[in-house]
Nucleic acid binder design. Structure first.
Lengths: 227, 227
DNA sequence: ACGCTCAAATCTGTCGACAGAATTGACGTT
DNA sequence: AACGTCAATTCTGTCGACAGATTTGAGCGT
């Protein structure tokens, strides 16, 4: 049992209880530790994590803002139940936003940033040839790429939206997308083409390829959902 | 002094204190009652509205999620200071999202919904010919149109984003955009052309016109900011 | 006058408590 | 065995309190 209170005296871990709780609860929801539709009781979570209800409430309210739980007044909150319709809606939004980010990345990337992108993808390609490649891909590589493109796009609000507010929700739906064999390989190839378009400062092509890349992921998601 | 506690026993007003506070604080920020950059003290607000710090904290945390205040740990929160850069970023995001909504509206609108759109615009046109037209426009007409298009688009997450999470922030920046003479007239004409494109089920044109419409508003905003 | 020091005042983060509403579950009815 | 009732339990929304950190500002030295 890892109560937060026990670790609280570590000076390096000075984050607020609410933030730690939000991270842990988010992770638990994405990983399925809390079943979709199950109720989250404030007193129970408070006891479980060794804190009072105050921080738990604040963390839950943030989960609510991020659409990871649904809340009915005076009836508590329940873990969101992901539906294929939600997935379609979210990936449609993500398609235009990531496309926008890629376009701006092509317009704004410095030579050093393009070098960083290529270095990162080279690392991903190497990692993909090893065992446990899928785990690595799902856990870090995919996010790394999209994070970096969003950052290079130099729109702070867009970055916050893609890599902050919506990040966990996207991850929740991606997690349901059991990796079909070869999907990671294909995704990496798509990443590489996007980076080349950015390196060419071809904003229009960068946006097109990124949108196609997201649409491809969306198709995999929907097909699986209806299968 | 309108404390919330006094009105609490009205059975019709059963909303949670946090929600009421969030609305009132949002409004105060948009209207400039709280100056940009000024600090929001929890005890002071609690006393002012006649409630305890709990609901005030939750309302403030929601303001933070919505980017209406910035927060530094253990230093409280300050009302966001709108910059031209922020405005540009936000309207760039809004452009692709509203364009997406318009495209989907054209794909999904029923005959009845198109009739509703036309009826609404007819009302707006009539209202614009009367005195106080600007106030009416800024307060309701503009939002009405964008709300309805987003709703007809039938993407619940997109609707929530445009008409919920980002609504007040967009309003904050629009409020700084003192209405240039004739802007409301021109905006209404643009709305009318968008509705005709939707009525023709021309998704591509609907998206194009909506994006141009937002871009036009953005240009006005930026020009004024740099003036 | 200006800057520094340090104590007073204020505020944030966290906790525990209570009232009323909602949920659960035992019990009796059909 | 299914259903409705009602009391016991649990939970949410709200409040007040406290410790430690931060900010304020009075007093002092220069």
């Amino acid at each position: 049992m890892s109560t937060l209170a026990d670790e609280k005296h570590d000076p390096a871990d000075d984050r607020l209880l609410t933030d730690q709780l939000f991270d842990q609860l988010s992770e638990a929801i994405v990983m399925g530790t809390f079943a979709p539709g199950s109720k989250l009781s404030e007193p129970r979570l408070a006891a479980q994590y060794g804190v009072s209800r105050g921080p738990v409430r604040e963390a839950i309210r943030r989960l609510e803002e991020r659409k990871l739980v649904t809340s009915a007044p005076r009836q508590g909150v329940r873990v969101v139940v992901p539906t294929p319709e939600d997935a379609l809606e979210l990936f449609t939004i993500r398609e235009v936003l990531e496309g926008l980010a890629a376009r701006h990345a092509a317009d704004n990337a410095t030579d050093a940033e393009i070098e960083d992108l290529r270095t990162m993808l080279a690392g991903h390609r190497q990692a993909l040839s090893k065992p446990d490649a899928m785990v690595y891909w799902q856990a870090t590589a995919n996010s790394d790429f999209h994070f970096m493109v969003a950052r290079i796009g130099r729109n702070q609000h867009l970055f916050d939206l893609l890599c902050g507010e919506y990040y966990t929700l996207f991850r929740l739906y991606r997690m349901r997308h059991r990796i079909v064999p070869g999907r990671a390989q294909r995704a990496l190839a798509e990443h590489e083409r996007i980076v080349e378009a950015i390196a060419d400062r071809d904003a229009e092509l960068s946006e097109l390829l990124m949108r196609r890349h997201i649409a491809s992921a969306r198709t995999g998601l929907i097909n699986q959902a209806t299968a």
